[in-house]
Design a protein around this nucleic acid. Structure first.
Length: 430
RNA sequence: GUGAUUGUAGCUCAGUUGGUUAGAGCGCCAGGUUGUGGCCCUGGAGGUCGGGGGUUCGAGUCCCCUCAUUCACCCCA
């Protein structure tokens, strides 16, 4: 084994797997286009304060999962981005996007970093695709974002998903509810587990998230956030649900759903897959109108977004056999030379074929004809082009169809004619 | 951070109560056809048995340490 191996929680993706990624990414980009989301790319690291302010200092992500470092002893601390929303919002504020147009629809496919203990569906470097809709967060905007997300799953053919949705109310609602929760849990303080005790102080909402079975009854009896909402918030939530029904998107209302990032308000949602292990959340998101103010934007900015874990998505697809048959595309033709002295001419022919837009492979290792043919077969080449002494002299090559095994003798122009595929433009017109 | 799990060829794994030069399948390379692949046959390359220490006449097999893996808690995508 090599002296070096991939860092804990990271992995290499070789061509066989890379084509699966390309397939999913292609669907994401295609649907993003249909829904009018344009790609945004932000830096892989930001100032640490951005995440502390944006995500919330009491969250696990900020508290113990960030890869932070000092670029130099006097410099400001930097952090490898653990999620995308804070960075996108920072970029939007910095560019003052909303002064250029009142609504922006952005999507991304990006690598993120979190210092967690790796397990099934959880790595330290992972990839999310997601969308951020800035400028409006109306029920229509929420439905727009959810439709895009669910549309990706539907297009990919993924089954067995659960969409759970909840409303967290506005900041005032949450503040009132926080106090109600604290009052409720305080008498039970001794029965709470360590982490819940801490949350009681800092962020009692997240006690509801606990999966600790010992706390189940206590949580069940807790006051409901829903009862602390203003009527407008309830009304708005109903409208979101109504829009989802209109679009045939199945959901379950779950009043215990609390997202782990502090910036969410009003609608929050999460999608889980039955194909995954303990880490079954495949995507999630919600509204975050207050994030802009939190980041020094001076005022709230209506915004709603989601993020989906690519690795988890791929695991679920694999389990459902949705990735079968995906493999790197082989060349159209493999140039086979009889002997090494002809390899120079073989290269010339290969380059001319490539210039003509035909994917062409050739042997670079000076191997036997048999080995070259094996290689052509392994790569899944459609044709083999034989160049022996006779062909070299006559300029008439042997073109063999590797599926039908039929072979014909043709000049280079005729070979190109036979192998040339219609260009993309042509096939689009056709 | 806590708990458990597993580390033998590129991959998936066998290796019996510790006993001579560590095996299989797949993959790879070559030959069988010195001008033609897939199937088949034959042969070959490839392993300091994760690393270190210990017990023993003898350790892939037992003990300790260490590193890594995987799964779960936690949290999240």
């Amino acid at each position: 084994m090599s002296q070096y191996q991939a860092v804990k929680g990271t992995k290499d993706i070789f061509p066989d797997e890379a084509v699966q990624w390309q397939f999913v990414e292609g669907v994401v980009r295609w649907l993003a286009g249909l829904y009018g989301f344009n790609e945004v790319r932000t830096p892989a690291f930001e100032y640490t304060e951005l995440f502390q302010r944006g995500i919330g200092a009491t969250t696990d992500i900020v508290g113990k999962e960030m890869f932070s470092f000092l670029p130099d002893p006097q410099g400001r601390s930097l952090t490898l981005r653990p999620e995308m929303t804070a960075g996108v919002m920072r970029a939007a504020l910095q560019r003052n996007l909303l002064s250029q147009a009142p609504v922006h629809k952005l999507f991304y496919i990006s690598d993120l970093f979190r210092k967690e203990r790796p397990q099934a569906g959880r790595q330290r470097q992972f990839t999310q695709f997601g969308a951020e809709l800035l400028g409006v967060s109306s029920p229509a905007a929420v439905a727009e974002v959810l439709s895009f997300m669910m549309g990706v799953f539907e297009t990919l053919g993924l089954k067995g998903l659960r969409l759970r949705i909840n409303t967290l109310g506005d900041l005032e609602d949450r503040a009132r509810y926080r106090e109600a929760l604290r009052t409720y849990f305080l008498p039970y303080a001794d029965e709470l587990d360590e982490s819940s005790k801490e949350r009681l102080e800092k962020n009692p909402l997240r006690i509801l998230d606990s999966k600790n079975p010992a706390l189940k009854d206590m949580i069940f009896g807790a006051p409901k956030l829903f009862d602390h909402l203003k009527p407008e918030a309830v009304e708005e939530f109903e409208e979101v649900l109504s829009l989802l029904r209109d679009r045939g998107i199945a959901y379950e209302v779950d009043h215990l759903l609390v997202r782990g990032l502090d910036y969410y308000c009003h609608t929050a949602f999460e999608v889980t897959s039955s194909e995954l292990g303990a880490q079954d959340a495949i995507g999630g998101g919600g509204r975050y109108d207050g994030l802009a103010r939190e980041l020094g934007g001076g005022k709230d900015m209506p915004a709603v977004g989601f993020a989906v874990g690519m690795e988890r998505l791929l695991i679920a697809m694999e389990k459902q056999g949705l990735l079968e048959g995906l493999k790197p595309e082989g060349p159209k033709v493999f140039v086979v030379v009889q002997q090494q002295e002809l390899s120079g001419h073989g290269m010339q022919v290969a380059f001319q074929l490539r210039r003509a837009g035909i994917s062409t492979e050739l042997d670079l290792a000076g191997r036997s004809m048999k080995a070259q043919m094996r290689e052509a077969n392994r790569l899944g080449s459609a044709y083999a082009l034989f160049i022996g002494q006779t062909e070299f002299e006559s300029g008439q090559y042997g073109l063999k169809n590797l599926v039908s095994s039929e072979q014909e003798t043709l000049g280079l122009e005729a070979v190109i004619e036979r192998l040339r595929e219609p260009s993309i433009q042509e096939s689009l017109k056709g």
